[in-house]
């Protein structure tokens, strides 16, 4: 159960951790967008170095950063294989009906590189930003979006509540599974139908307690006269510092460099 780590914050103090969450959010957004314009080795090289510098600045151990790739490793391998064998082009290698083409190789390499960089980059965001800061940042950024500005606070609040429920529910799930196992419930054998049925003794109590918790929280908020929205002030105002402007400038410069590598090839 402990493998479920959403918002796997790594608690150290680093320049990366101290950046404004908005800077990091915008940075990741730009980085991911930027990657889609890259199509050559030099470009990926620069993007890779940029990521390495960020990881180094974050003081998060490499093993932690790479761990985020584990769940999608299969996806990467699978898409690479599909791209490799399904793309038309000049055949460079053939065995039976399997043909591997030059454009297949380049497409597969492109996709794999992009996926790895995107996932690692965005997991660096969650590794260096607490969920509270993250939702604050999202809320502030949404204020600038025309249609969403009215409900930005509600969206931010909903996200932070949902995120804060995850560890509680994981714990609850663990408790319920153990209790039902002690009553002889068997989750490991039988066919799919039997296994789905075996989930009922877990899901019913889990939903009951989730709904109960949610309504208790709503009651607690209401009894303290919570109203979201316009006139709410906050204890920690988000403020851009020189480091934020500096890192944003560097990022944009690096991404521009990535883009113009096109001219080189």
């Amino acid at each position: 159960m402990n493998d479920i780590t959403v918002g796997q914050y790594y608690p150290v103090d680093s320049p990366m951790h101290r950046l404004d969450p908005r800077t990091k959010l915008k940075g990741v957004f730009l980085y991911v967008m930027g990657l889609f314009f890259v199509n050559n080795l030099y470009g990926y090289g620069i993007a890779f170095i940029l990521l390495c510098v960020c990881v180094a600045c974050s003081k998060v151990p490499i093993s932690y950063v790479l761990r985020s790739l584990k769940p999608i490793l299969m996806v990467i391998v699978f898409t690479s294989i599909i791209n490799l064998v399904w793309t038309q082009g000049n055949v460079v290698w053939q065995m039976g009906f399997i043909k591997i083409t030059d454009s297949g190789i380049s497409l597969a390499a492109n996709m794999a590189a992009r996926l790895v960089l995107i996932i690692t980059g965005s997991s660096l965001l969650t590794l260096t930003t607490t969920t509270v800061a993250l939702t604050d940042g999202i809320e502030m950024l949404l204020r600038k979006v025309p249609l969403l500005s009215k409900v930005s606070h509600e969206i931010g609040m909903m996200m932070s509540i949902a995120l804060s429920f995850i560890p509680t529910l994981t714990e609850e799930l663990d408790r319920i599974v153990k209790a039902q196992k002690s009553r002889g419930a068997d989750f490991e054998s039988g066919n799919i139908a039997a296994r789905a049925k075996a989930m009922i003794p877990i899901l019913v109590p889990l939903f009951v307690s989730a709904i109960q918790r949610a309504s208790e929280l709503a009651m607690a908020m209401e009894s303290r006269c919570y109203t979201g929205g316009t006139n709410r002030t906050r204890m920690k105002e988000l403020k851009y510092r020189p480091a934020d402007h500096l890192s944003m400038t560097c990022l944009v410069a690096a991404l521009a460099a990535c883009y113009f590598t096109k001219a080189l090839v």
């Binding site: 609850e172 408790r175 319920i176 153990k178 209790a179 039902q180 002690s182 009553r183 009922i200 003794p201 019913v204 109590p205 009951v208 307690s209």
Partner: peptide, 11 residues
């Protein structure tokens, strides 16, 4: 085993 707050296991 009867766990802490076992009423949460009723279904």
């Amino acid at each position: 085993i009867v766990f802490q707050y076992p009423e949460y296991q009723l279904f």
